[in-house]
Design a protein around this nucleic acid. Structure first.
Lengths: 102, 102, 102, 102
DNA sequence: TAAGCATTGTCACCCC
DNA sequence: GGGGTGACAATGCTTA
């Protein structure tokens, strides 16, 4: 049984072990603190990104366009065209592509 | 004039300087690469966070509840209480709570 | 065999029937169009909802609170209470609430 | 003053008018009910869409691919290529497009 | 039942 | 400051 089940026990159930409950609370606290720490770092990075945009803007660049370019580069790299062929089959069936000769 | 203006010149305008344009492109490339690098790090952190939640889940913790608790911890205590009170006001107006005497 | 299988045939396979393929394409087109029509209606409703919120906001209501209250109204009363209790359990484990005697 | 402000009055403030408060509550209730009604309709449409997919699936179509096709059709129609030219300028600066002669 | 995916809602940023 | 837009998180559905 996962130890966290201890936290979820129905009221009125007998506590199995004070020690176990303590461990569980410590474990939960550890998870929460790890998450909160990671979120802080993530937030700091978001601020760094904002600063770079601000710097670019102060140099005269259009940040809106920059964002679009970055988004497009991301899409290209993700290369969503897996299953491309089957999609084409359906598109053809819908008249979205010219018919081909088999 | 900010050097980025070079990129925005109308077609047909005379290019002021090939050298200047090259510098501007380099500068833009630099900004974009810095941003993309920071975003990668940010994404990696997001994945780390997901992993911690997954680990907590495998230990039997309820991640939905964990998220709510973490959100609550983030909020200012005063704001939190004010929000709770306002919810009650609205509930009361909707007959979801018994009326109270002021 | 379901008729759609016609679309999935391997290249080089002999086409069973041009007539069948045409029917299948029509059928697919029909499905797609029905879905797109329904999605349009759904989108229109989403916009209506947004408008109601905007109107409420212009009358001075706090839409964030409204959203929370509506979410609460949607939830099963029992589930809601169970969730609240679980949040308290977690808060207590994290020292955000005083300990209680069982 | 927007009438909803009545609901938000600080504790201890004198109630301006019981009648006004009643009207405000009615108004809130009206907004909430309108929203809930619209959400029900929206939910019903979502179920209709699900049913169409289920029917298509039972005819042998691959619903995952269908979803992709529908998404692509939506994107095409949205025609995000506004500001396309300026984006090209930036892409060129980043070496994502071949250089052109002005 | 869990994991991935798709949608939906929330939040923050940006511009007006 | 407020409204609109876009990113992000979170929940619910689908499938394996």
């Amino acid at each position: 049984m996962a130890r966290a089940a201890e936290l979820h026990r129905e009221r009125g159930e007998k506590t199995e072990s004070v020690v176990t409950a303590g461990v569980t609370a410590d474990q939960l606290r550890s998870f929460v603190e790890r998450i909160e720490r990671l979120e802080e770092e993530k937030k700091a990075l978001a601020e760094d990104i904002k600063e770079v945009y601000a710097e670019a803007k102060s140099e005269g660049f259009d940040t809106k366009i920059m964002r679009q370019v970055i988004r497009i580069r991301k899409m290209n790299e993700a290369d969503l065209q897996e299953q491309e062929e089957l999609i084409d089959v359906y598109k053809r069936a819908l008249g979205m592509l010219p018919d081909v000769e088999d």
